[in-house]
Write a protein that binds this DNA or RNA. Structure first.
Lengths: 225, 225
DNA sequence: TGTACATCAGTGAACGCGCGTTCACTGATGTAC
DNA sequence: TGTACATCAGTGAACGCGCGTTCACTGATGTAC
């Protein structure tokens, strides 16, 4: 509680410095408290060592601050995913590693993930924020590479949205219910990601499998082994 | 706002009636406002036509009321999923229809879904509430039937958790971001569910596929067609 | 070199709001004698 | 049959809390003349 250090006033012309400090404080509060609600303007101001109204010098209102947090989170997520993709032995493996990195990021930064991707959002701006984010763009590009390599078939955007759903599924469950009796996390994450990758590979070339009698489907699958 | 109808006092011995009315009011508030925050004790009391402290006659505190809502939601979800399963042409198709029903339920009752499955929960009781719910139990049983039929291989509980992740993924995305430019919802839902089903079928019998050189994997997959 | 003035970075105190919860209470209905 | 009493279902008023936001203000630093 005793974060009561008073921040020295910025030099003339350097007023913008406070903006960065406020943003950082909001991010850090999320990490340290693990509580979305802990990010009140009062808490942020106290952590920076500044009065509450000062925040309004740099953010129109609380939502504007949270929007800035979102951008920051997406940037960090993009960094993690791109780094992971580079480790892949091929484009499919790279995609797999991106999926794992995505979920790991959520687990490591649960409240950041929650604020960005588990909150309800109604306005139109937020959609752009996600869909037009570098992270999403890079991910779609990787999916396209898999299409080009012949692993997947179909529209990369559509496929990416399905893969995203699977990754978000594990991520969101782990973030929302950290104390469930999950399987060992790394295994669980890897298996869901594998399921999704295999599922897209298979379903994108067998769209009609719903009509197959079950024994025939089983026979086909067993032939693969 | 003018829900100000006053509720007549229950007859002697029928005090428990109020409990049901309060619970129903909480459920209805979620449906009508589409806002988790709209469920305040004051709002619930007003809707029932009763004073706020009356709620404490039947629920220890607000959390107890929300827990009761959760149970109600799981019961409703179970009904939907079991009904859907009956329509399947075989066990695999039944599982697919359960997945679709699950996501549809979330889309139709977004705030109920959010309260139960997208909120952070720390205590141990809630885990039991989900895992021991009839809905989850029945779902695992269906997965086991698929294992018995030879579509999947492995431990039904573990497989169920992976399938759940995929279904939760679409559900949670649609609930959190209803205004995103999603593909047509029914298509999106069906495709994610199909991806998951196919993915489990395939990955549960090809655990080693990560080590396959990419061209070989592609060749194998193409042979299926 | 001195002084009036503008700008900039920030503050203190208060606003009204809705929330969960508590406490002492009311008033009708049944029961015992 | 009449009356005292217990029980039951509920109420009114208040508690303290933390929240986002606003407004008039301060005081140091630079600039113009």
């Amino acid at each position: 509680m005793s974060e009561a250090a008073v921040r020295p006033r910025s030099a003339r012309g350097k007023g913008a410095e406070l903006r960065g400090e406020v943003l950082r404080a909001a991010m850090d509060l999320l990490t340290e408290t693990g509580e979305e609600d802990a990010v009140s303007l009062r808490a942020v101001a106290q952590r920076v060592g500044v009065s509450v109204p000062s925040i309004y010098l740099h953010f129109a209102d609380k939502q504007a601050l949270l929007d800035a947090v979102c951008e920051e989170v997406f940037a960090a997520l993009d960094v993690q995913m791109r780094a992971a993709a580079l480790e892949g032995t091929d484009v499919f493996d790279g995609l797999r590693l991106q999926g794992i990195a995505y979920v790991r990021f959520a687990v490591a930064n649960p409240e950041h993930y929650r604020i960005v991707l588990m909150r309800k959002h109604l306005g139109g701006d937020h959609a752009d924020l996600v869909m037009a984010s570098a992270a999403f763009e890079h991910f779609v590009a990787s999916v396209q590479e898999c299409v080009d390599a012949g692993v997947f078939e179909g529209d990369a955007d559509a496929l990416a949205l399905r893969l995203w759903a699977a990754a978000h599924g594990v991520a969101a469950l782990l973030v929302a219910k950290p104390y469930f009796p999950w399987p060992p996390l790394e295994d669980y994450i890897e298996q869901v990601v594998r399921m999704a990758g295999m599922g897209i590979a298979l379903s994108s070339r067998m769209a009609d499998c719903d009509n197959l009698p079950l024994p025939e489907l089983v026979a086909k699958l067993n032939a693969l082994r």
